[in-house]
Design a protein around this nucleic acid. Structure first.
Lengths: 146, 146
DNA sequence: CTGGGTGCAAAAAGTTTGCAGCGAC
DNA sequence: GTCGCTGCAAACTTTTTGCACCCAG
C-alpha cells in the first residue's frame, strides 16, 4: 500500500518527489489540517521545504484525486485523504471540535434535496456548524425530544 | 420599519451614521454579499467610504445582531440580514448559483443529529455544496421521482 | 541528459490596526 | 463640547507567481 499513491502520481504524468511524499504523509497523519499546519508538520521533519511547495503539492494531490479539502469555519481550507472516504463534518462552535459522520447519517437529507430540488449533494464537502453535546448548556440540553 | 435598525444600534450604545446605514442597505440589497461586494456597492453610492469602515461596520452589525455571515465556498464570508430569517444555502459547484431553503427542509437532519449525537445544529450556517438541477448531466439528472 | 519540481523572494489578495480629524448626540 | 466613528495609510496574513537551479526518470 505504500506504493499505491506514487503510482497514482506517475499515472497522471507527475513525478514522485520526497516533498510530495512528505506532504501526503502529513495530510494522512494530521487529519483535517490546514496548509499551514501541514507546512509546519513537514518542516519539522525536513528543513528546507517551502510553503509554496506545500500549496503547489496540495493543489496537485487534489487534482490527482489523492486528497480533498473542505471548508471548516471561516476561511480555513482543511485537507484530508480522499481514500478515507467521504464523510460529513460536525464542527462545534464552542470547543472547535470536529466530529466525523458517515454518509449514512445524512442520507435522508441528500435524498430529499435530490427529490425536492433536483440538487446533487456533494456529501464530502458537507459541514454542519453548531454546538456539540459537551458544550451545550446542561439545562435545556436534553428535554428536547420530550 | 425604516427606523427599526437604528434603534437596535442605539440600544446597544452605538451611534447611527450614514456609513452604517449604507452598509446595512447594501447587505439588504445584495443578499449573500462578500465584504468586497458590499464595499463596491456602498462606494458607488457615496465616494469616500473606506474598506476598513465596511469591515468594522459588518463586524459591529453582526455583533448587534442585525446581520449574520455564512461561509459559502472557499474563503468567502458572505453577509445577509439576520432578520431575513435563518435559511439553509445550497451552493452549486458548477454555476455558483445559490438557492435558499427554509429551515423546514433540513428539520429531519437537525433532529437526527440532535437525537443521535446530541449536536445542536446552527441551521443558519448550514451550507450544502453540490450540483443544481440545471447543471446536472441531463441523463441521470431526473428519473428519480418518476 | 531533460524537463518537471523546488526554493527563494517578491507580488497579490484579503483583513486588521494606529492615529488624527470629524460629526452624531 | 465630547467621544465614538471614519478615512487614510501602513502592517499583517494567507496564497500565488516568476525565475534560476536541481534532481527524478
Amino acid at each position: 500500500m505504500s506504493q499505491t499513491w506514487d503510482d497514482a502520481l506517475r499515472a497522471s504524468g507527475y513525478r514522485v518527489t520526497p516533498q510530495r511524499q512528505l506532504v501526503l504523509e502529513a495530510v494522512t497523519r494530521l487529519e483535517h489540517a490546514t496548509p499551514e499546519e501541514i507546512y509546519a508538520e513537514v518542516k519539522q521533519t525536513v528543513v528546507g521545504v517551502n510553503v509554496s511547495t506545500v500549496y503547489r503539492t496540495l493543489e496537485l494531490l487534489e487534482q490527482v484525486g489523492l486528497v480533498t479539502h473542505t471548508h471548516l469555519g471561516h476561511g480555513a481550507h482543511r485537507y484530508h485523504l480522499a481514500a478515507q472516504g467521504q464523510h460529513v463534518h460536525l464542527v462545534c462552535r464552542a470547543c472547535g471540535g470536529i466530529t466525523e459522520l458517515e454518509q449514512a447519517a445524512v442520507r435522508p437529507l441528500v435524498e430529499s434535496l435530490d427529490a425536492d430540488y433536483g440538487f446533487d449533494t456533494d456529501v464530502g464537502h458537507l459541514t454542519v456548524f453548531g454546538t456539540c453535546v459537551s458544550c451545550r448548556p446542561p439545562n435545556h440540553a436534553k428535554m428536547r425530544r420530550s
